[in-house]
Design a binder for these strands. Structure first.
Lengths: 127, 127
DNA sequence: ACTATTGGTAATCGATCAGTTACGTGATCG
DNA sequence: CGATCACGTAACTGATCGATTACCAATAGT
């Protein structure tokens, strides 16, 4: 499942928010949310497939950790849509992408061609 | 349908990208995508419910225009998840939110309290 | 060793979604 | 006017999703 579909579910978004305070176990996450533990487990699997979380196996426990880099396509889409094509560059959006250690410039219409900063990462998984 | 669910569909994301070059009619949008016109119409309705587009009725034509402000919850979530709680502030994410003329600070754990810049808009529709 | 805890998986069910074809409505053009 | 164009809606279908209960494997504690 891709990142956007993973974020479509409010429960999954809530799980991601819960992980901002640090890695958590499945039991704790399911205790904090009004759904059964298998449901949480499935949601975590979806989030893991999307790259948004990773699991650290520690004995019989499994600690899920947030992986914010996987949000790059989302930030990239926001950057694409917010930037007005005729208004020059997209000054604001760039900094979030910096926060995600990925190059997601290339707002679709090949805005500038600055070979130094352009590497390889596509704007989205469909590209 | 909320913004995240609206963005979950790749066709809808593609429609939004098509609208970055300016308002378009339904016929043109459906001609550029491999789905039928009613399908495009339904997708546009979903996007309109999410606030991501608006329709300008001009005679028998209907011009759909992009509404980037509706991306605020998305940018807000990215800001929430990217900011590390123990690493101080969230410097990068803030600027995207500026680009969306909305205040989506308040990353959950009431990070600072700067009454001058905080107004009213919640981080997400669930809040 | 026995038992309790942690966590994933399988089977099932109901609901929602995305797509199509067919149809109806209002505006434009000859 | 009559024909056409643009657009939305209705009805229907196949696929996917989310949740639950029941079950199984592995680790930890006594």
């Amino acid at each position: 499942m891709d990142v956007f579909a993973a974020l479509a579910d409010p429960v999954r978004r809530e799980l991601l928010r819960a992980l901002t305070t640090g890695p958590s176990r499945v039991v704790d996450l399911s205790a904090a949310h009004p759904i059964s533990r298998p449901a949480v487990s499935r949601h975590l699997r979806v989030l893991a497939e999307a790259g948004l979380v990773t699991a650290d196996d520690r004995g019989r426990e499994r600690h899920y950790r947030l992986r914010p880099d996987a949000l790059a396509p989302v930030a990239g889409l926001v950057a694409e849509l917010v930037s007005e094509p005729q208004s020059g560059a997209a000054p604001f959006a760039a900094s979030v992408l910096d926060g995600l250690d990925l190059e997601v410039r290339r707002t679709g219409r090949e805005r500038r061609s600055d070979p130094a900063t352009r590497t390889s990462v596509p704007t989205e998984e469909t590209a």
